[in-house]
Every structure is written in structure tokens, then in C-alpha cells.
Amino acid sequence: MACECGNCIDYSVLERIIEESRGKEGILINVLHSAQEHYGALTPDIQKKIAEGLNIPLSQVYGTVTFYHFFTMVPKGKYVIKICTGTACYVRGANKLVESFADKLNVEVGGTTSDGLFSLETVRCVGACSLAPVVTVNDVDIYKRVTPKEIDGIIEGYRQKEAE
């Protein structure tokens, strides 16, 4: 049962995920995946519940979470900006885009803005080399042949969307 105080996190979904996976071999990554999908981040509490639930050491859960780029321990922003730094995008100036985004959002790669709106990530080749350099937002919006000049516009677009 979820606590009704409003501050507590409802872990019933996590408990269900663990229950369905218990006893299966090599299930940890799937559980982490589902948990992150639902809760947005694999917080220490969530990792601890997974370790206890699957009866594996917390050190292994933490080790797995920190190994894979995909997993995060802090909640990501509402809009996750991913800059492709694959070879084609890189030679066409992706690193300049990374710098500009980091500068304008005032976050490092892997970080999230203090208002929780944007996360900045790099990604290795999204498979759209002809559009290089490519930027994606939430894996849905695709921006092609991006130049640093367009960055303000992209960010502003989402800010306005929020304001509305």
C-alpha cells in the first residue's frame, strides 16, 4: 500500500517488478530497466530494494548501474537532449554543439538543469549520418545538420512549450 503522506514514493510497482523476476537467472538488468522506466532514476533506495528483493549484493547492483551509460541515479530532465558524437557527427562539429549546449544550459554532459527541464547527453551514432550532426530530444524530436547558432532556438522552443 502506498503511503498517503504525499512525500513517500510508492514502491508497489517496483515490488511487482521484483516479484515477477525473482528466481530468474541474469534478470538484474531487466529489473533495473523497468525500474528506471517507471521511477525515472535508480535512487539508492530503489537499488537497495532490488538487491534485497533479488537476493544479490547491493555492491553488484550498484556496480551494474554505474557500468551502463543508460542507467542513471538522478532523475533526468523533462527534455533529454542527446547529441550524436558518432564519427560522422563528430567530424561535422558535434563537439562544438556539446560545448554550446553545456554553456547555454549551464550543465555538464550527463547533468540536468536545476529547474529539472533539460538533461544533456551524448550518444554514439544514432544511425542518421547523412543528417550529421544530429541532435535528438526525448528520442522523438530529431534536429538535423544542427549548427551552434540554432541552439538558442531549440532550447527556447521547449521553454515556451513549458510556459504554455
Binding site: I56, P57, L58, S59, Q60, Y62, G63, T66, F67
Partner: peptide, 13 residues
């Protein structure tokens, strides 16, 4: 992990 099955430490990052 393997010998003592304590699991206090593990590879990370």
C-alpha cells in the same frame, strides 16, 4: 564475492 560470498565490494563504473 566468490570465496566469502559477502559481496561488500564489486566492480563499478
Amino acid at each position: 564475492n566468490e570465496v566469502q560470498t559477502v559481496g561488500a565490494i564489486f566492480s563499478q563504473k
